[in-house]
Amino acid sequence: MSSTQASSTQTSDTRTITIAHSPDSDDAFMFYGMATNKVRVPGYRFVHTLCDIEALNRRAMDEAFYDVTAISFHAYPYVQENYTLMSCGGSVGEGYGPMVVASKQLTTDDLTKIRVAVPGTLTTAYLALKIFNPEIETEVVPFDQIIPQIKAGNFDAGLIIHEGQLTYARSGLHKVIDLGVWWREQTGLVLPLGGNAIRRSLGAEVLHTVTQALRDSIQHGLDNREQGLEYAMQFARDLDTNLANRFVSMYVNERTLSYGPDGQEAIRKLLDLGHEKGIIPITPKVDFVD
């Protein structure tokens, strides 16, 4: 294990840490080092579960089940009593982000006249859309079914996340708005989308050790990009290697190693705005573990 990798006092008992994240190429790339035991921590064993992000949001709210869980930032105020945010492992849009796409050319004003398919009401994409215009009527559709549902004529427009941001055009769909672009125009900040939360009850030493292990895993992927991408490709829905590389680059980068002060500011601003506009009923209390 390299000197940069996390360490803890070796004990006779191995501590199991449960980790849950989405089955997406960017998350897979992020956890590549840990999932393949390239990054190890003496005395710790990491068990990975893959599940879609809205289901993870709900489980974190209902049970605080996993020690570490990927969550949408929109969901954080609902789980903040049990979880704190890791200072690494987040995905942010640097002037890009979730998009509303449609089967025909539409204006943003047109969106108030139709139903828009959304990937879940706890997703950050949904929060950003509602901050943009709370009057837009929405209906929840599994994220990987939104483009097919639009193509089938069941919806005129949909809010797309994940790889759909790179593939919608080849389905003959048209961009109505990129919420990452809109957010930067409004605030000058990146659009924070998802992060990793860790259970407070683990205690300060474990919080730090596991957070450092994730940071090491991210760095390992960045340092061994070809192998990391090869691993991530098994989770890259409908993407060839070039597009998967582009997608991973969008959401696993220096910002993923550390949000930076402006990234942390963006998280707080997004959640505070959601609270001020009545979308989030709970006062957000954002904190991070290094």
Rank of each mutant, 00 (worst) to 15 (best):
S3Y: 15
T4Q: 15
T9I: 15
I19D: 06
A20V: 00
H21L: 13
P23I: 13
M30A: 02
Y32E: 02
T36S: 10
R40D: 12
L56Y: 00
R58Y: 12
M61V: 09
A64Q: 06
D67A: 04
A70T: 10
S72Q: 10
A75R: 05
Y76L: 01
S87V: 09
V92K: 04
G93V: 02
P98C: 02
A102F: 00
S103T: 05
L106T: 03
D109F: 06
D109C: 02
T112A: 12
V118F: 14
T124H: 01
L127E: 09
P134K: 13
E137R: 15
E137Q: 14
E139R: 14
P142Y: 10
P142H: 09
D144Q: 14
I147A: 02
P148Y: 07
G153M: 11
I160C: 05
I161N: 05
E163G: 11
A169V: 12
G180N: 10
E185T: 05
G188F: 04
L189Y: 09
L193G: 06
A197F: 00
R199E: 02
R200V: 11
G203V: 05
G203C: 08
L214M: 13
L222G: 01
L222Y: 01
E230G: 11
A232G: 10
V248W: 00
Y259M: 15
P261N: 13
D262F: 03
G263N: 04
I267V: 13
E276F: 07
P284V: 02
K285R: 08
